[in-house]
Design a protein around this nucleic acid. Structure first.
Length: 570
DNA sequence: GCCGTTTTCGGCCCGACTGTTTTCAGTCG
């Protein structure tokens, strides 16, 4: 984990505990600062060295000191003290749906509950209903929520929820009372992981919509059901919130429920200064409650003195300031993507043949496709021997001849060996159009070693791109220790691309790193890393990462003509 | 704790639903 991320995490934790303690405003200050630190495109240590921590928006004297302390000692006394100030178990118990700080504190004080097991036992023994303000129903809900807490994974991958969203939207459209239906929240912002889904429906008949929604087949539990808001849990434990909105305030609701929370707080704060009130029903003048705009999301932003911005940017990482100044990036769009620069075939361990992958690419209207099977050392993935690779080159040439509508590149996803050399010799690499160099082994080594391996791969005259540059697997494996600033600097000098890998559990580079790479002058290349034809449809996930990284078409080489890409390397 | 073409002090975004209440606190997003 980079130090920026560590600092941000500690600030978030301080914010969370302050919220539990009821200190709303201080909590928000820490959350806002954490958000800004996450989005920094520069190493926070450099900023601290220049004494410019307080230049970071949302960081003042106190938080700057906390950051300085984390940089110097690796931890924060403030956080330690806050943790110690909470009764034991409170942080764990509030993870249970329906239990917040107040209830957790009372359960601790009045029943001595310090963990999930004791909470479950107390509910089973019917001890909780004896407390003032509690009843049998609350007790039952706690038991259900505990079992759900245990079975749910923390967050869902964007790549796995997008198909579910499509299914839900199709289902909702079956009901005639549904006018518009769309997903808001972090899924609309295309965040790499999604905690729950926020579904928005415009309708004149909320009751019909709610009934239809709550009888959707994969629902295992209805958590709440009101005239405008319902919450359900699907069988895979994904929670879905439905909001039913009158058509005239659809735009306001879309804005409101898309978030992020920090983006909205900032936006509404600006609104307050201008004499507005913004909620899910519209933008109002504070003095007389007169409606200014509600139907059109774009016009709401305009009324607040800024241009509309794509949901992917709404993280309060500078997009509001950019929108006010008219300096928003012209984000790359999926329809600009001409090719996929990283796919596997059954020459190595993937499912489909070379020709099947090509046919899929043609079906997707791609103009080029790079065939990049694993190299010989990666035995676990049936990496190609030199002979096998030469054989594949021949087949690629034949298929390239056969299908004139697409250019097929010969290539490899070549292992970067522990000594930093590539897995094939130069006379083999020379024969290839496209060399992606990736690390697959020795990922546990220290930062300096990993960084030097990648730097060495960048120096190789045949390396075109660095594959999945940080090696992380979302929620499964941390990125390896690597100094990205040095990597980006070298890549920019050598005209080597950084990959944005589209595999749902990789998305590597991730959004903030892509933004940082762009600032360093690095161009990025999207590759699906597809191991089957269907995985080539992960391409939009890479575009989502690029958009969240503020990338414009020129930053993403998949928008370039193939000749320009191949000429780029010096 | 942060911030300032209304402020260096006094503000700080906004609403829905539940369970337990007879008018609302707590939780959630």
């Amino acid at each position: 984990m980079s130090l920026n991320q560590k600092v941000a995490d500690e600030l978030y934790q301080i914010g969370e505990i302050l919220a539990i303690k009821g200190d709303r405003f201080r909590s928000r200050a820490y959350n806002m600062a954490a958000q800004r630190v996450t989005a920094l495109t520069e190493d926070i240590v450099s900023i601290a060295d220049r004494g410019e921590l307080e230049e970071i928006p949302g960081v003042g004297e106190s938080i700057a000191m906390v950051i300085q302390e984390i940089i110097e000692t690796g931890q924060s006394i403030v956080l330690e003290q806050l943790r110690d100030s909470l009764p034991k178990g409170v942080l764990q118990i509030i993870e249970v749906e329906g239990i917040g700080p107040k209830i957790a504190m009372r359960l601790n004080e009045e029943l001595g509950i310090t963990n999930l097991e004791e909470l479950e036992q107390a509910a089973k023994d019917q001890k909780i209903r004896e407390l003032k303000g509690f009843g049998a129903k609350k007790e039952k809900n706690i038991l259900t929520a505990i079992s759900e807490y245990r079975s749910r994974s923390t967050r869902f991958l964007l790549g796995e929820v997008l198909p579910i969203i499509q299914g839900i939207i199709s289902y909702m459209r079956e009901n005639p009372a549904v006018r518009k239906v769309e997903v808001a929240g972090s899924a609309r912002r295309m965040k790499e992981t999604v905690g729950d889904l926020d579904l928005l429906v415009s309708s004149l008949d909320p009751e019909a919509v709610t009934e239809h929604f709550c009888s959707m087949p994969p629902i295992v539990r209805v958590l709440g059901k009101g005239p405008t808001k319902s919450t359900v849990v699907l069988e895979n434990m994904l929670q879905v919130d439905l909001r039913v909105i009158p058509p005239e305030s659809y735009g306001a609701a879309l804005q409101y429920f898309t978030g992020s929370k920090e983006h909205n707080v900032k936006l509404r704060t600006i609104g307050v200064k201008e004499g507005f009130k913004l909620n899910e029903y519209g933008l109002f003048r504070r003095e007389n409650n007169e409606l200014v705009e509600a139907e059109d999301e774009e016009k709401i932003y305009e009324a607040l003195g800024m241009s509309w911005m794509p949901p992917e940017l709404r993280e309060n990482t500078g997009e509001i300031e950019a929108a006010i100044e008219g300096k928003l990036p012209n984000l790359v769009t999926f329809d600009r993507i001409k090719g996929d620069l990283h796919v596997h075939t059954n020459y190595s361990h993937a499912i489909h043949s070379l020709e099947e992958m090509v046919l899929k690419a043609i079906d997707m209207k791609l103009e080029y496709l790079a065939i990049t099977d694993h190299s010989k050392s990666l035995a676990i993935a049936q990496g190609l021997t030199e002979e096998k690779l030469l054989q594949q080159i021949e087949e690629v040439r034949q298929i390239d001849e056969k299908y004139s509508e697409i250019k097929i590149l010969t290539g490899t996803e070549c292992d970067i060996k522990p000594d930093g050399s590539l897995d094939y010799s130069d006379d083999i690499l020379e024969k290839l159009d496209w060399v992606v160099a990736s690390i697959h082994v020795g990922m546990q080594r220290e930062e300096k070693i990993i960084t030097n391996r990648i730097l060495s791969a960048i120096q190789n005259p045949y390396t075109r791109a660095i594959g999945h540059p940080t090696g992380r697997l979302i929620q499964k494996r941390n990125p390896y220790e690597v100094n990205l600033d040095r990597i980006f600097e070298a890549a920019a000098n050598q005209n080597v691309f950084m990959e944005i890998n589209c595999s749902p559990s990789r998305l590597d580079l991730k959004d903030v790193d892509a933004r940082r790479a762009k600032e360093s002058g690095v161009k990025m290349a999207i590759g699906t890393d597809a191991h089957s034809t269907s995985q080539m449809e992960f391409l939009p996930l890479g575009v989502a990462v690029a958009r969240r990284g503020w990338l414009e078409p020129e930053d993403l080489v998949n928008t370039w003509e193939i000749d320009k890409i191949l000429r780029f390397k010096k």
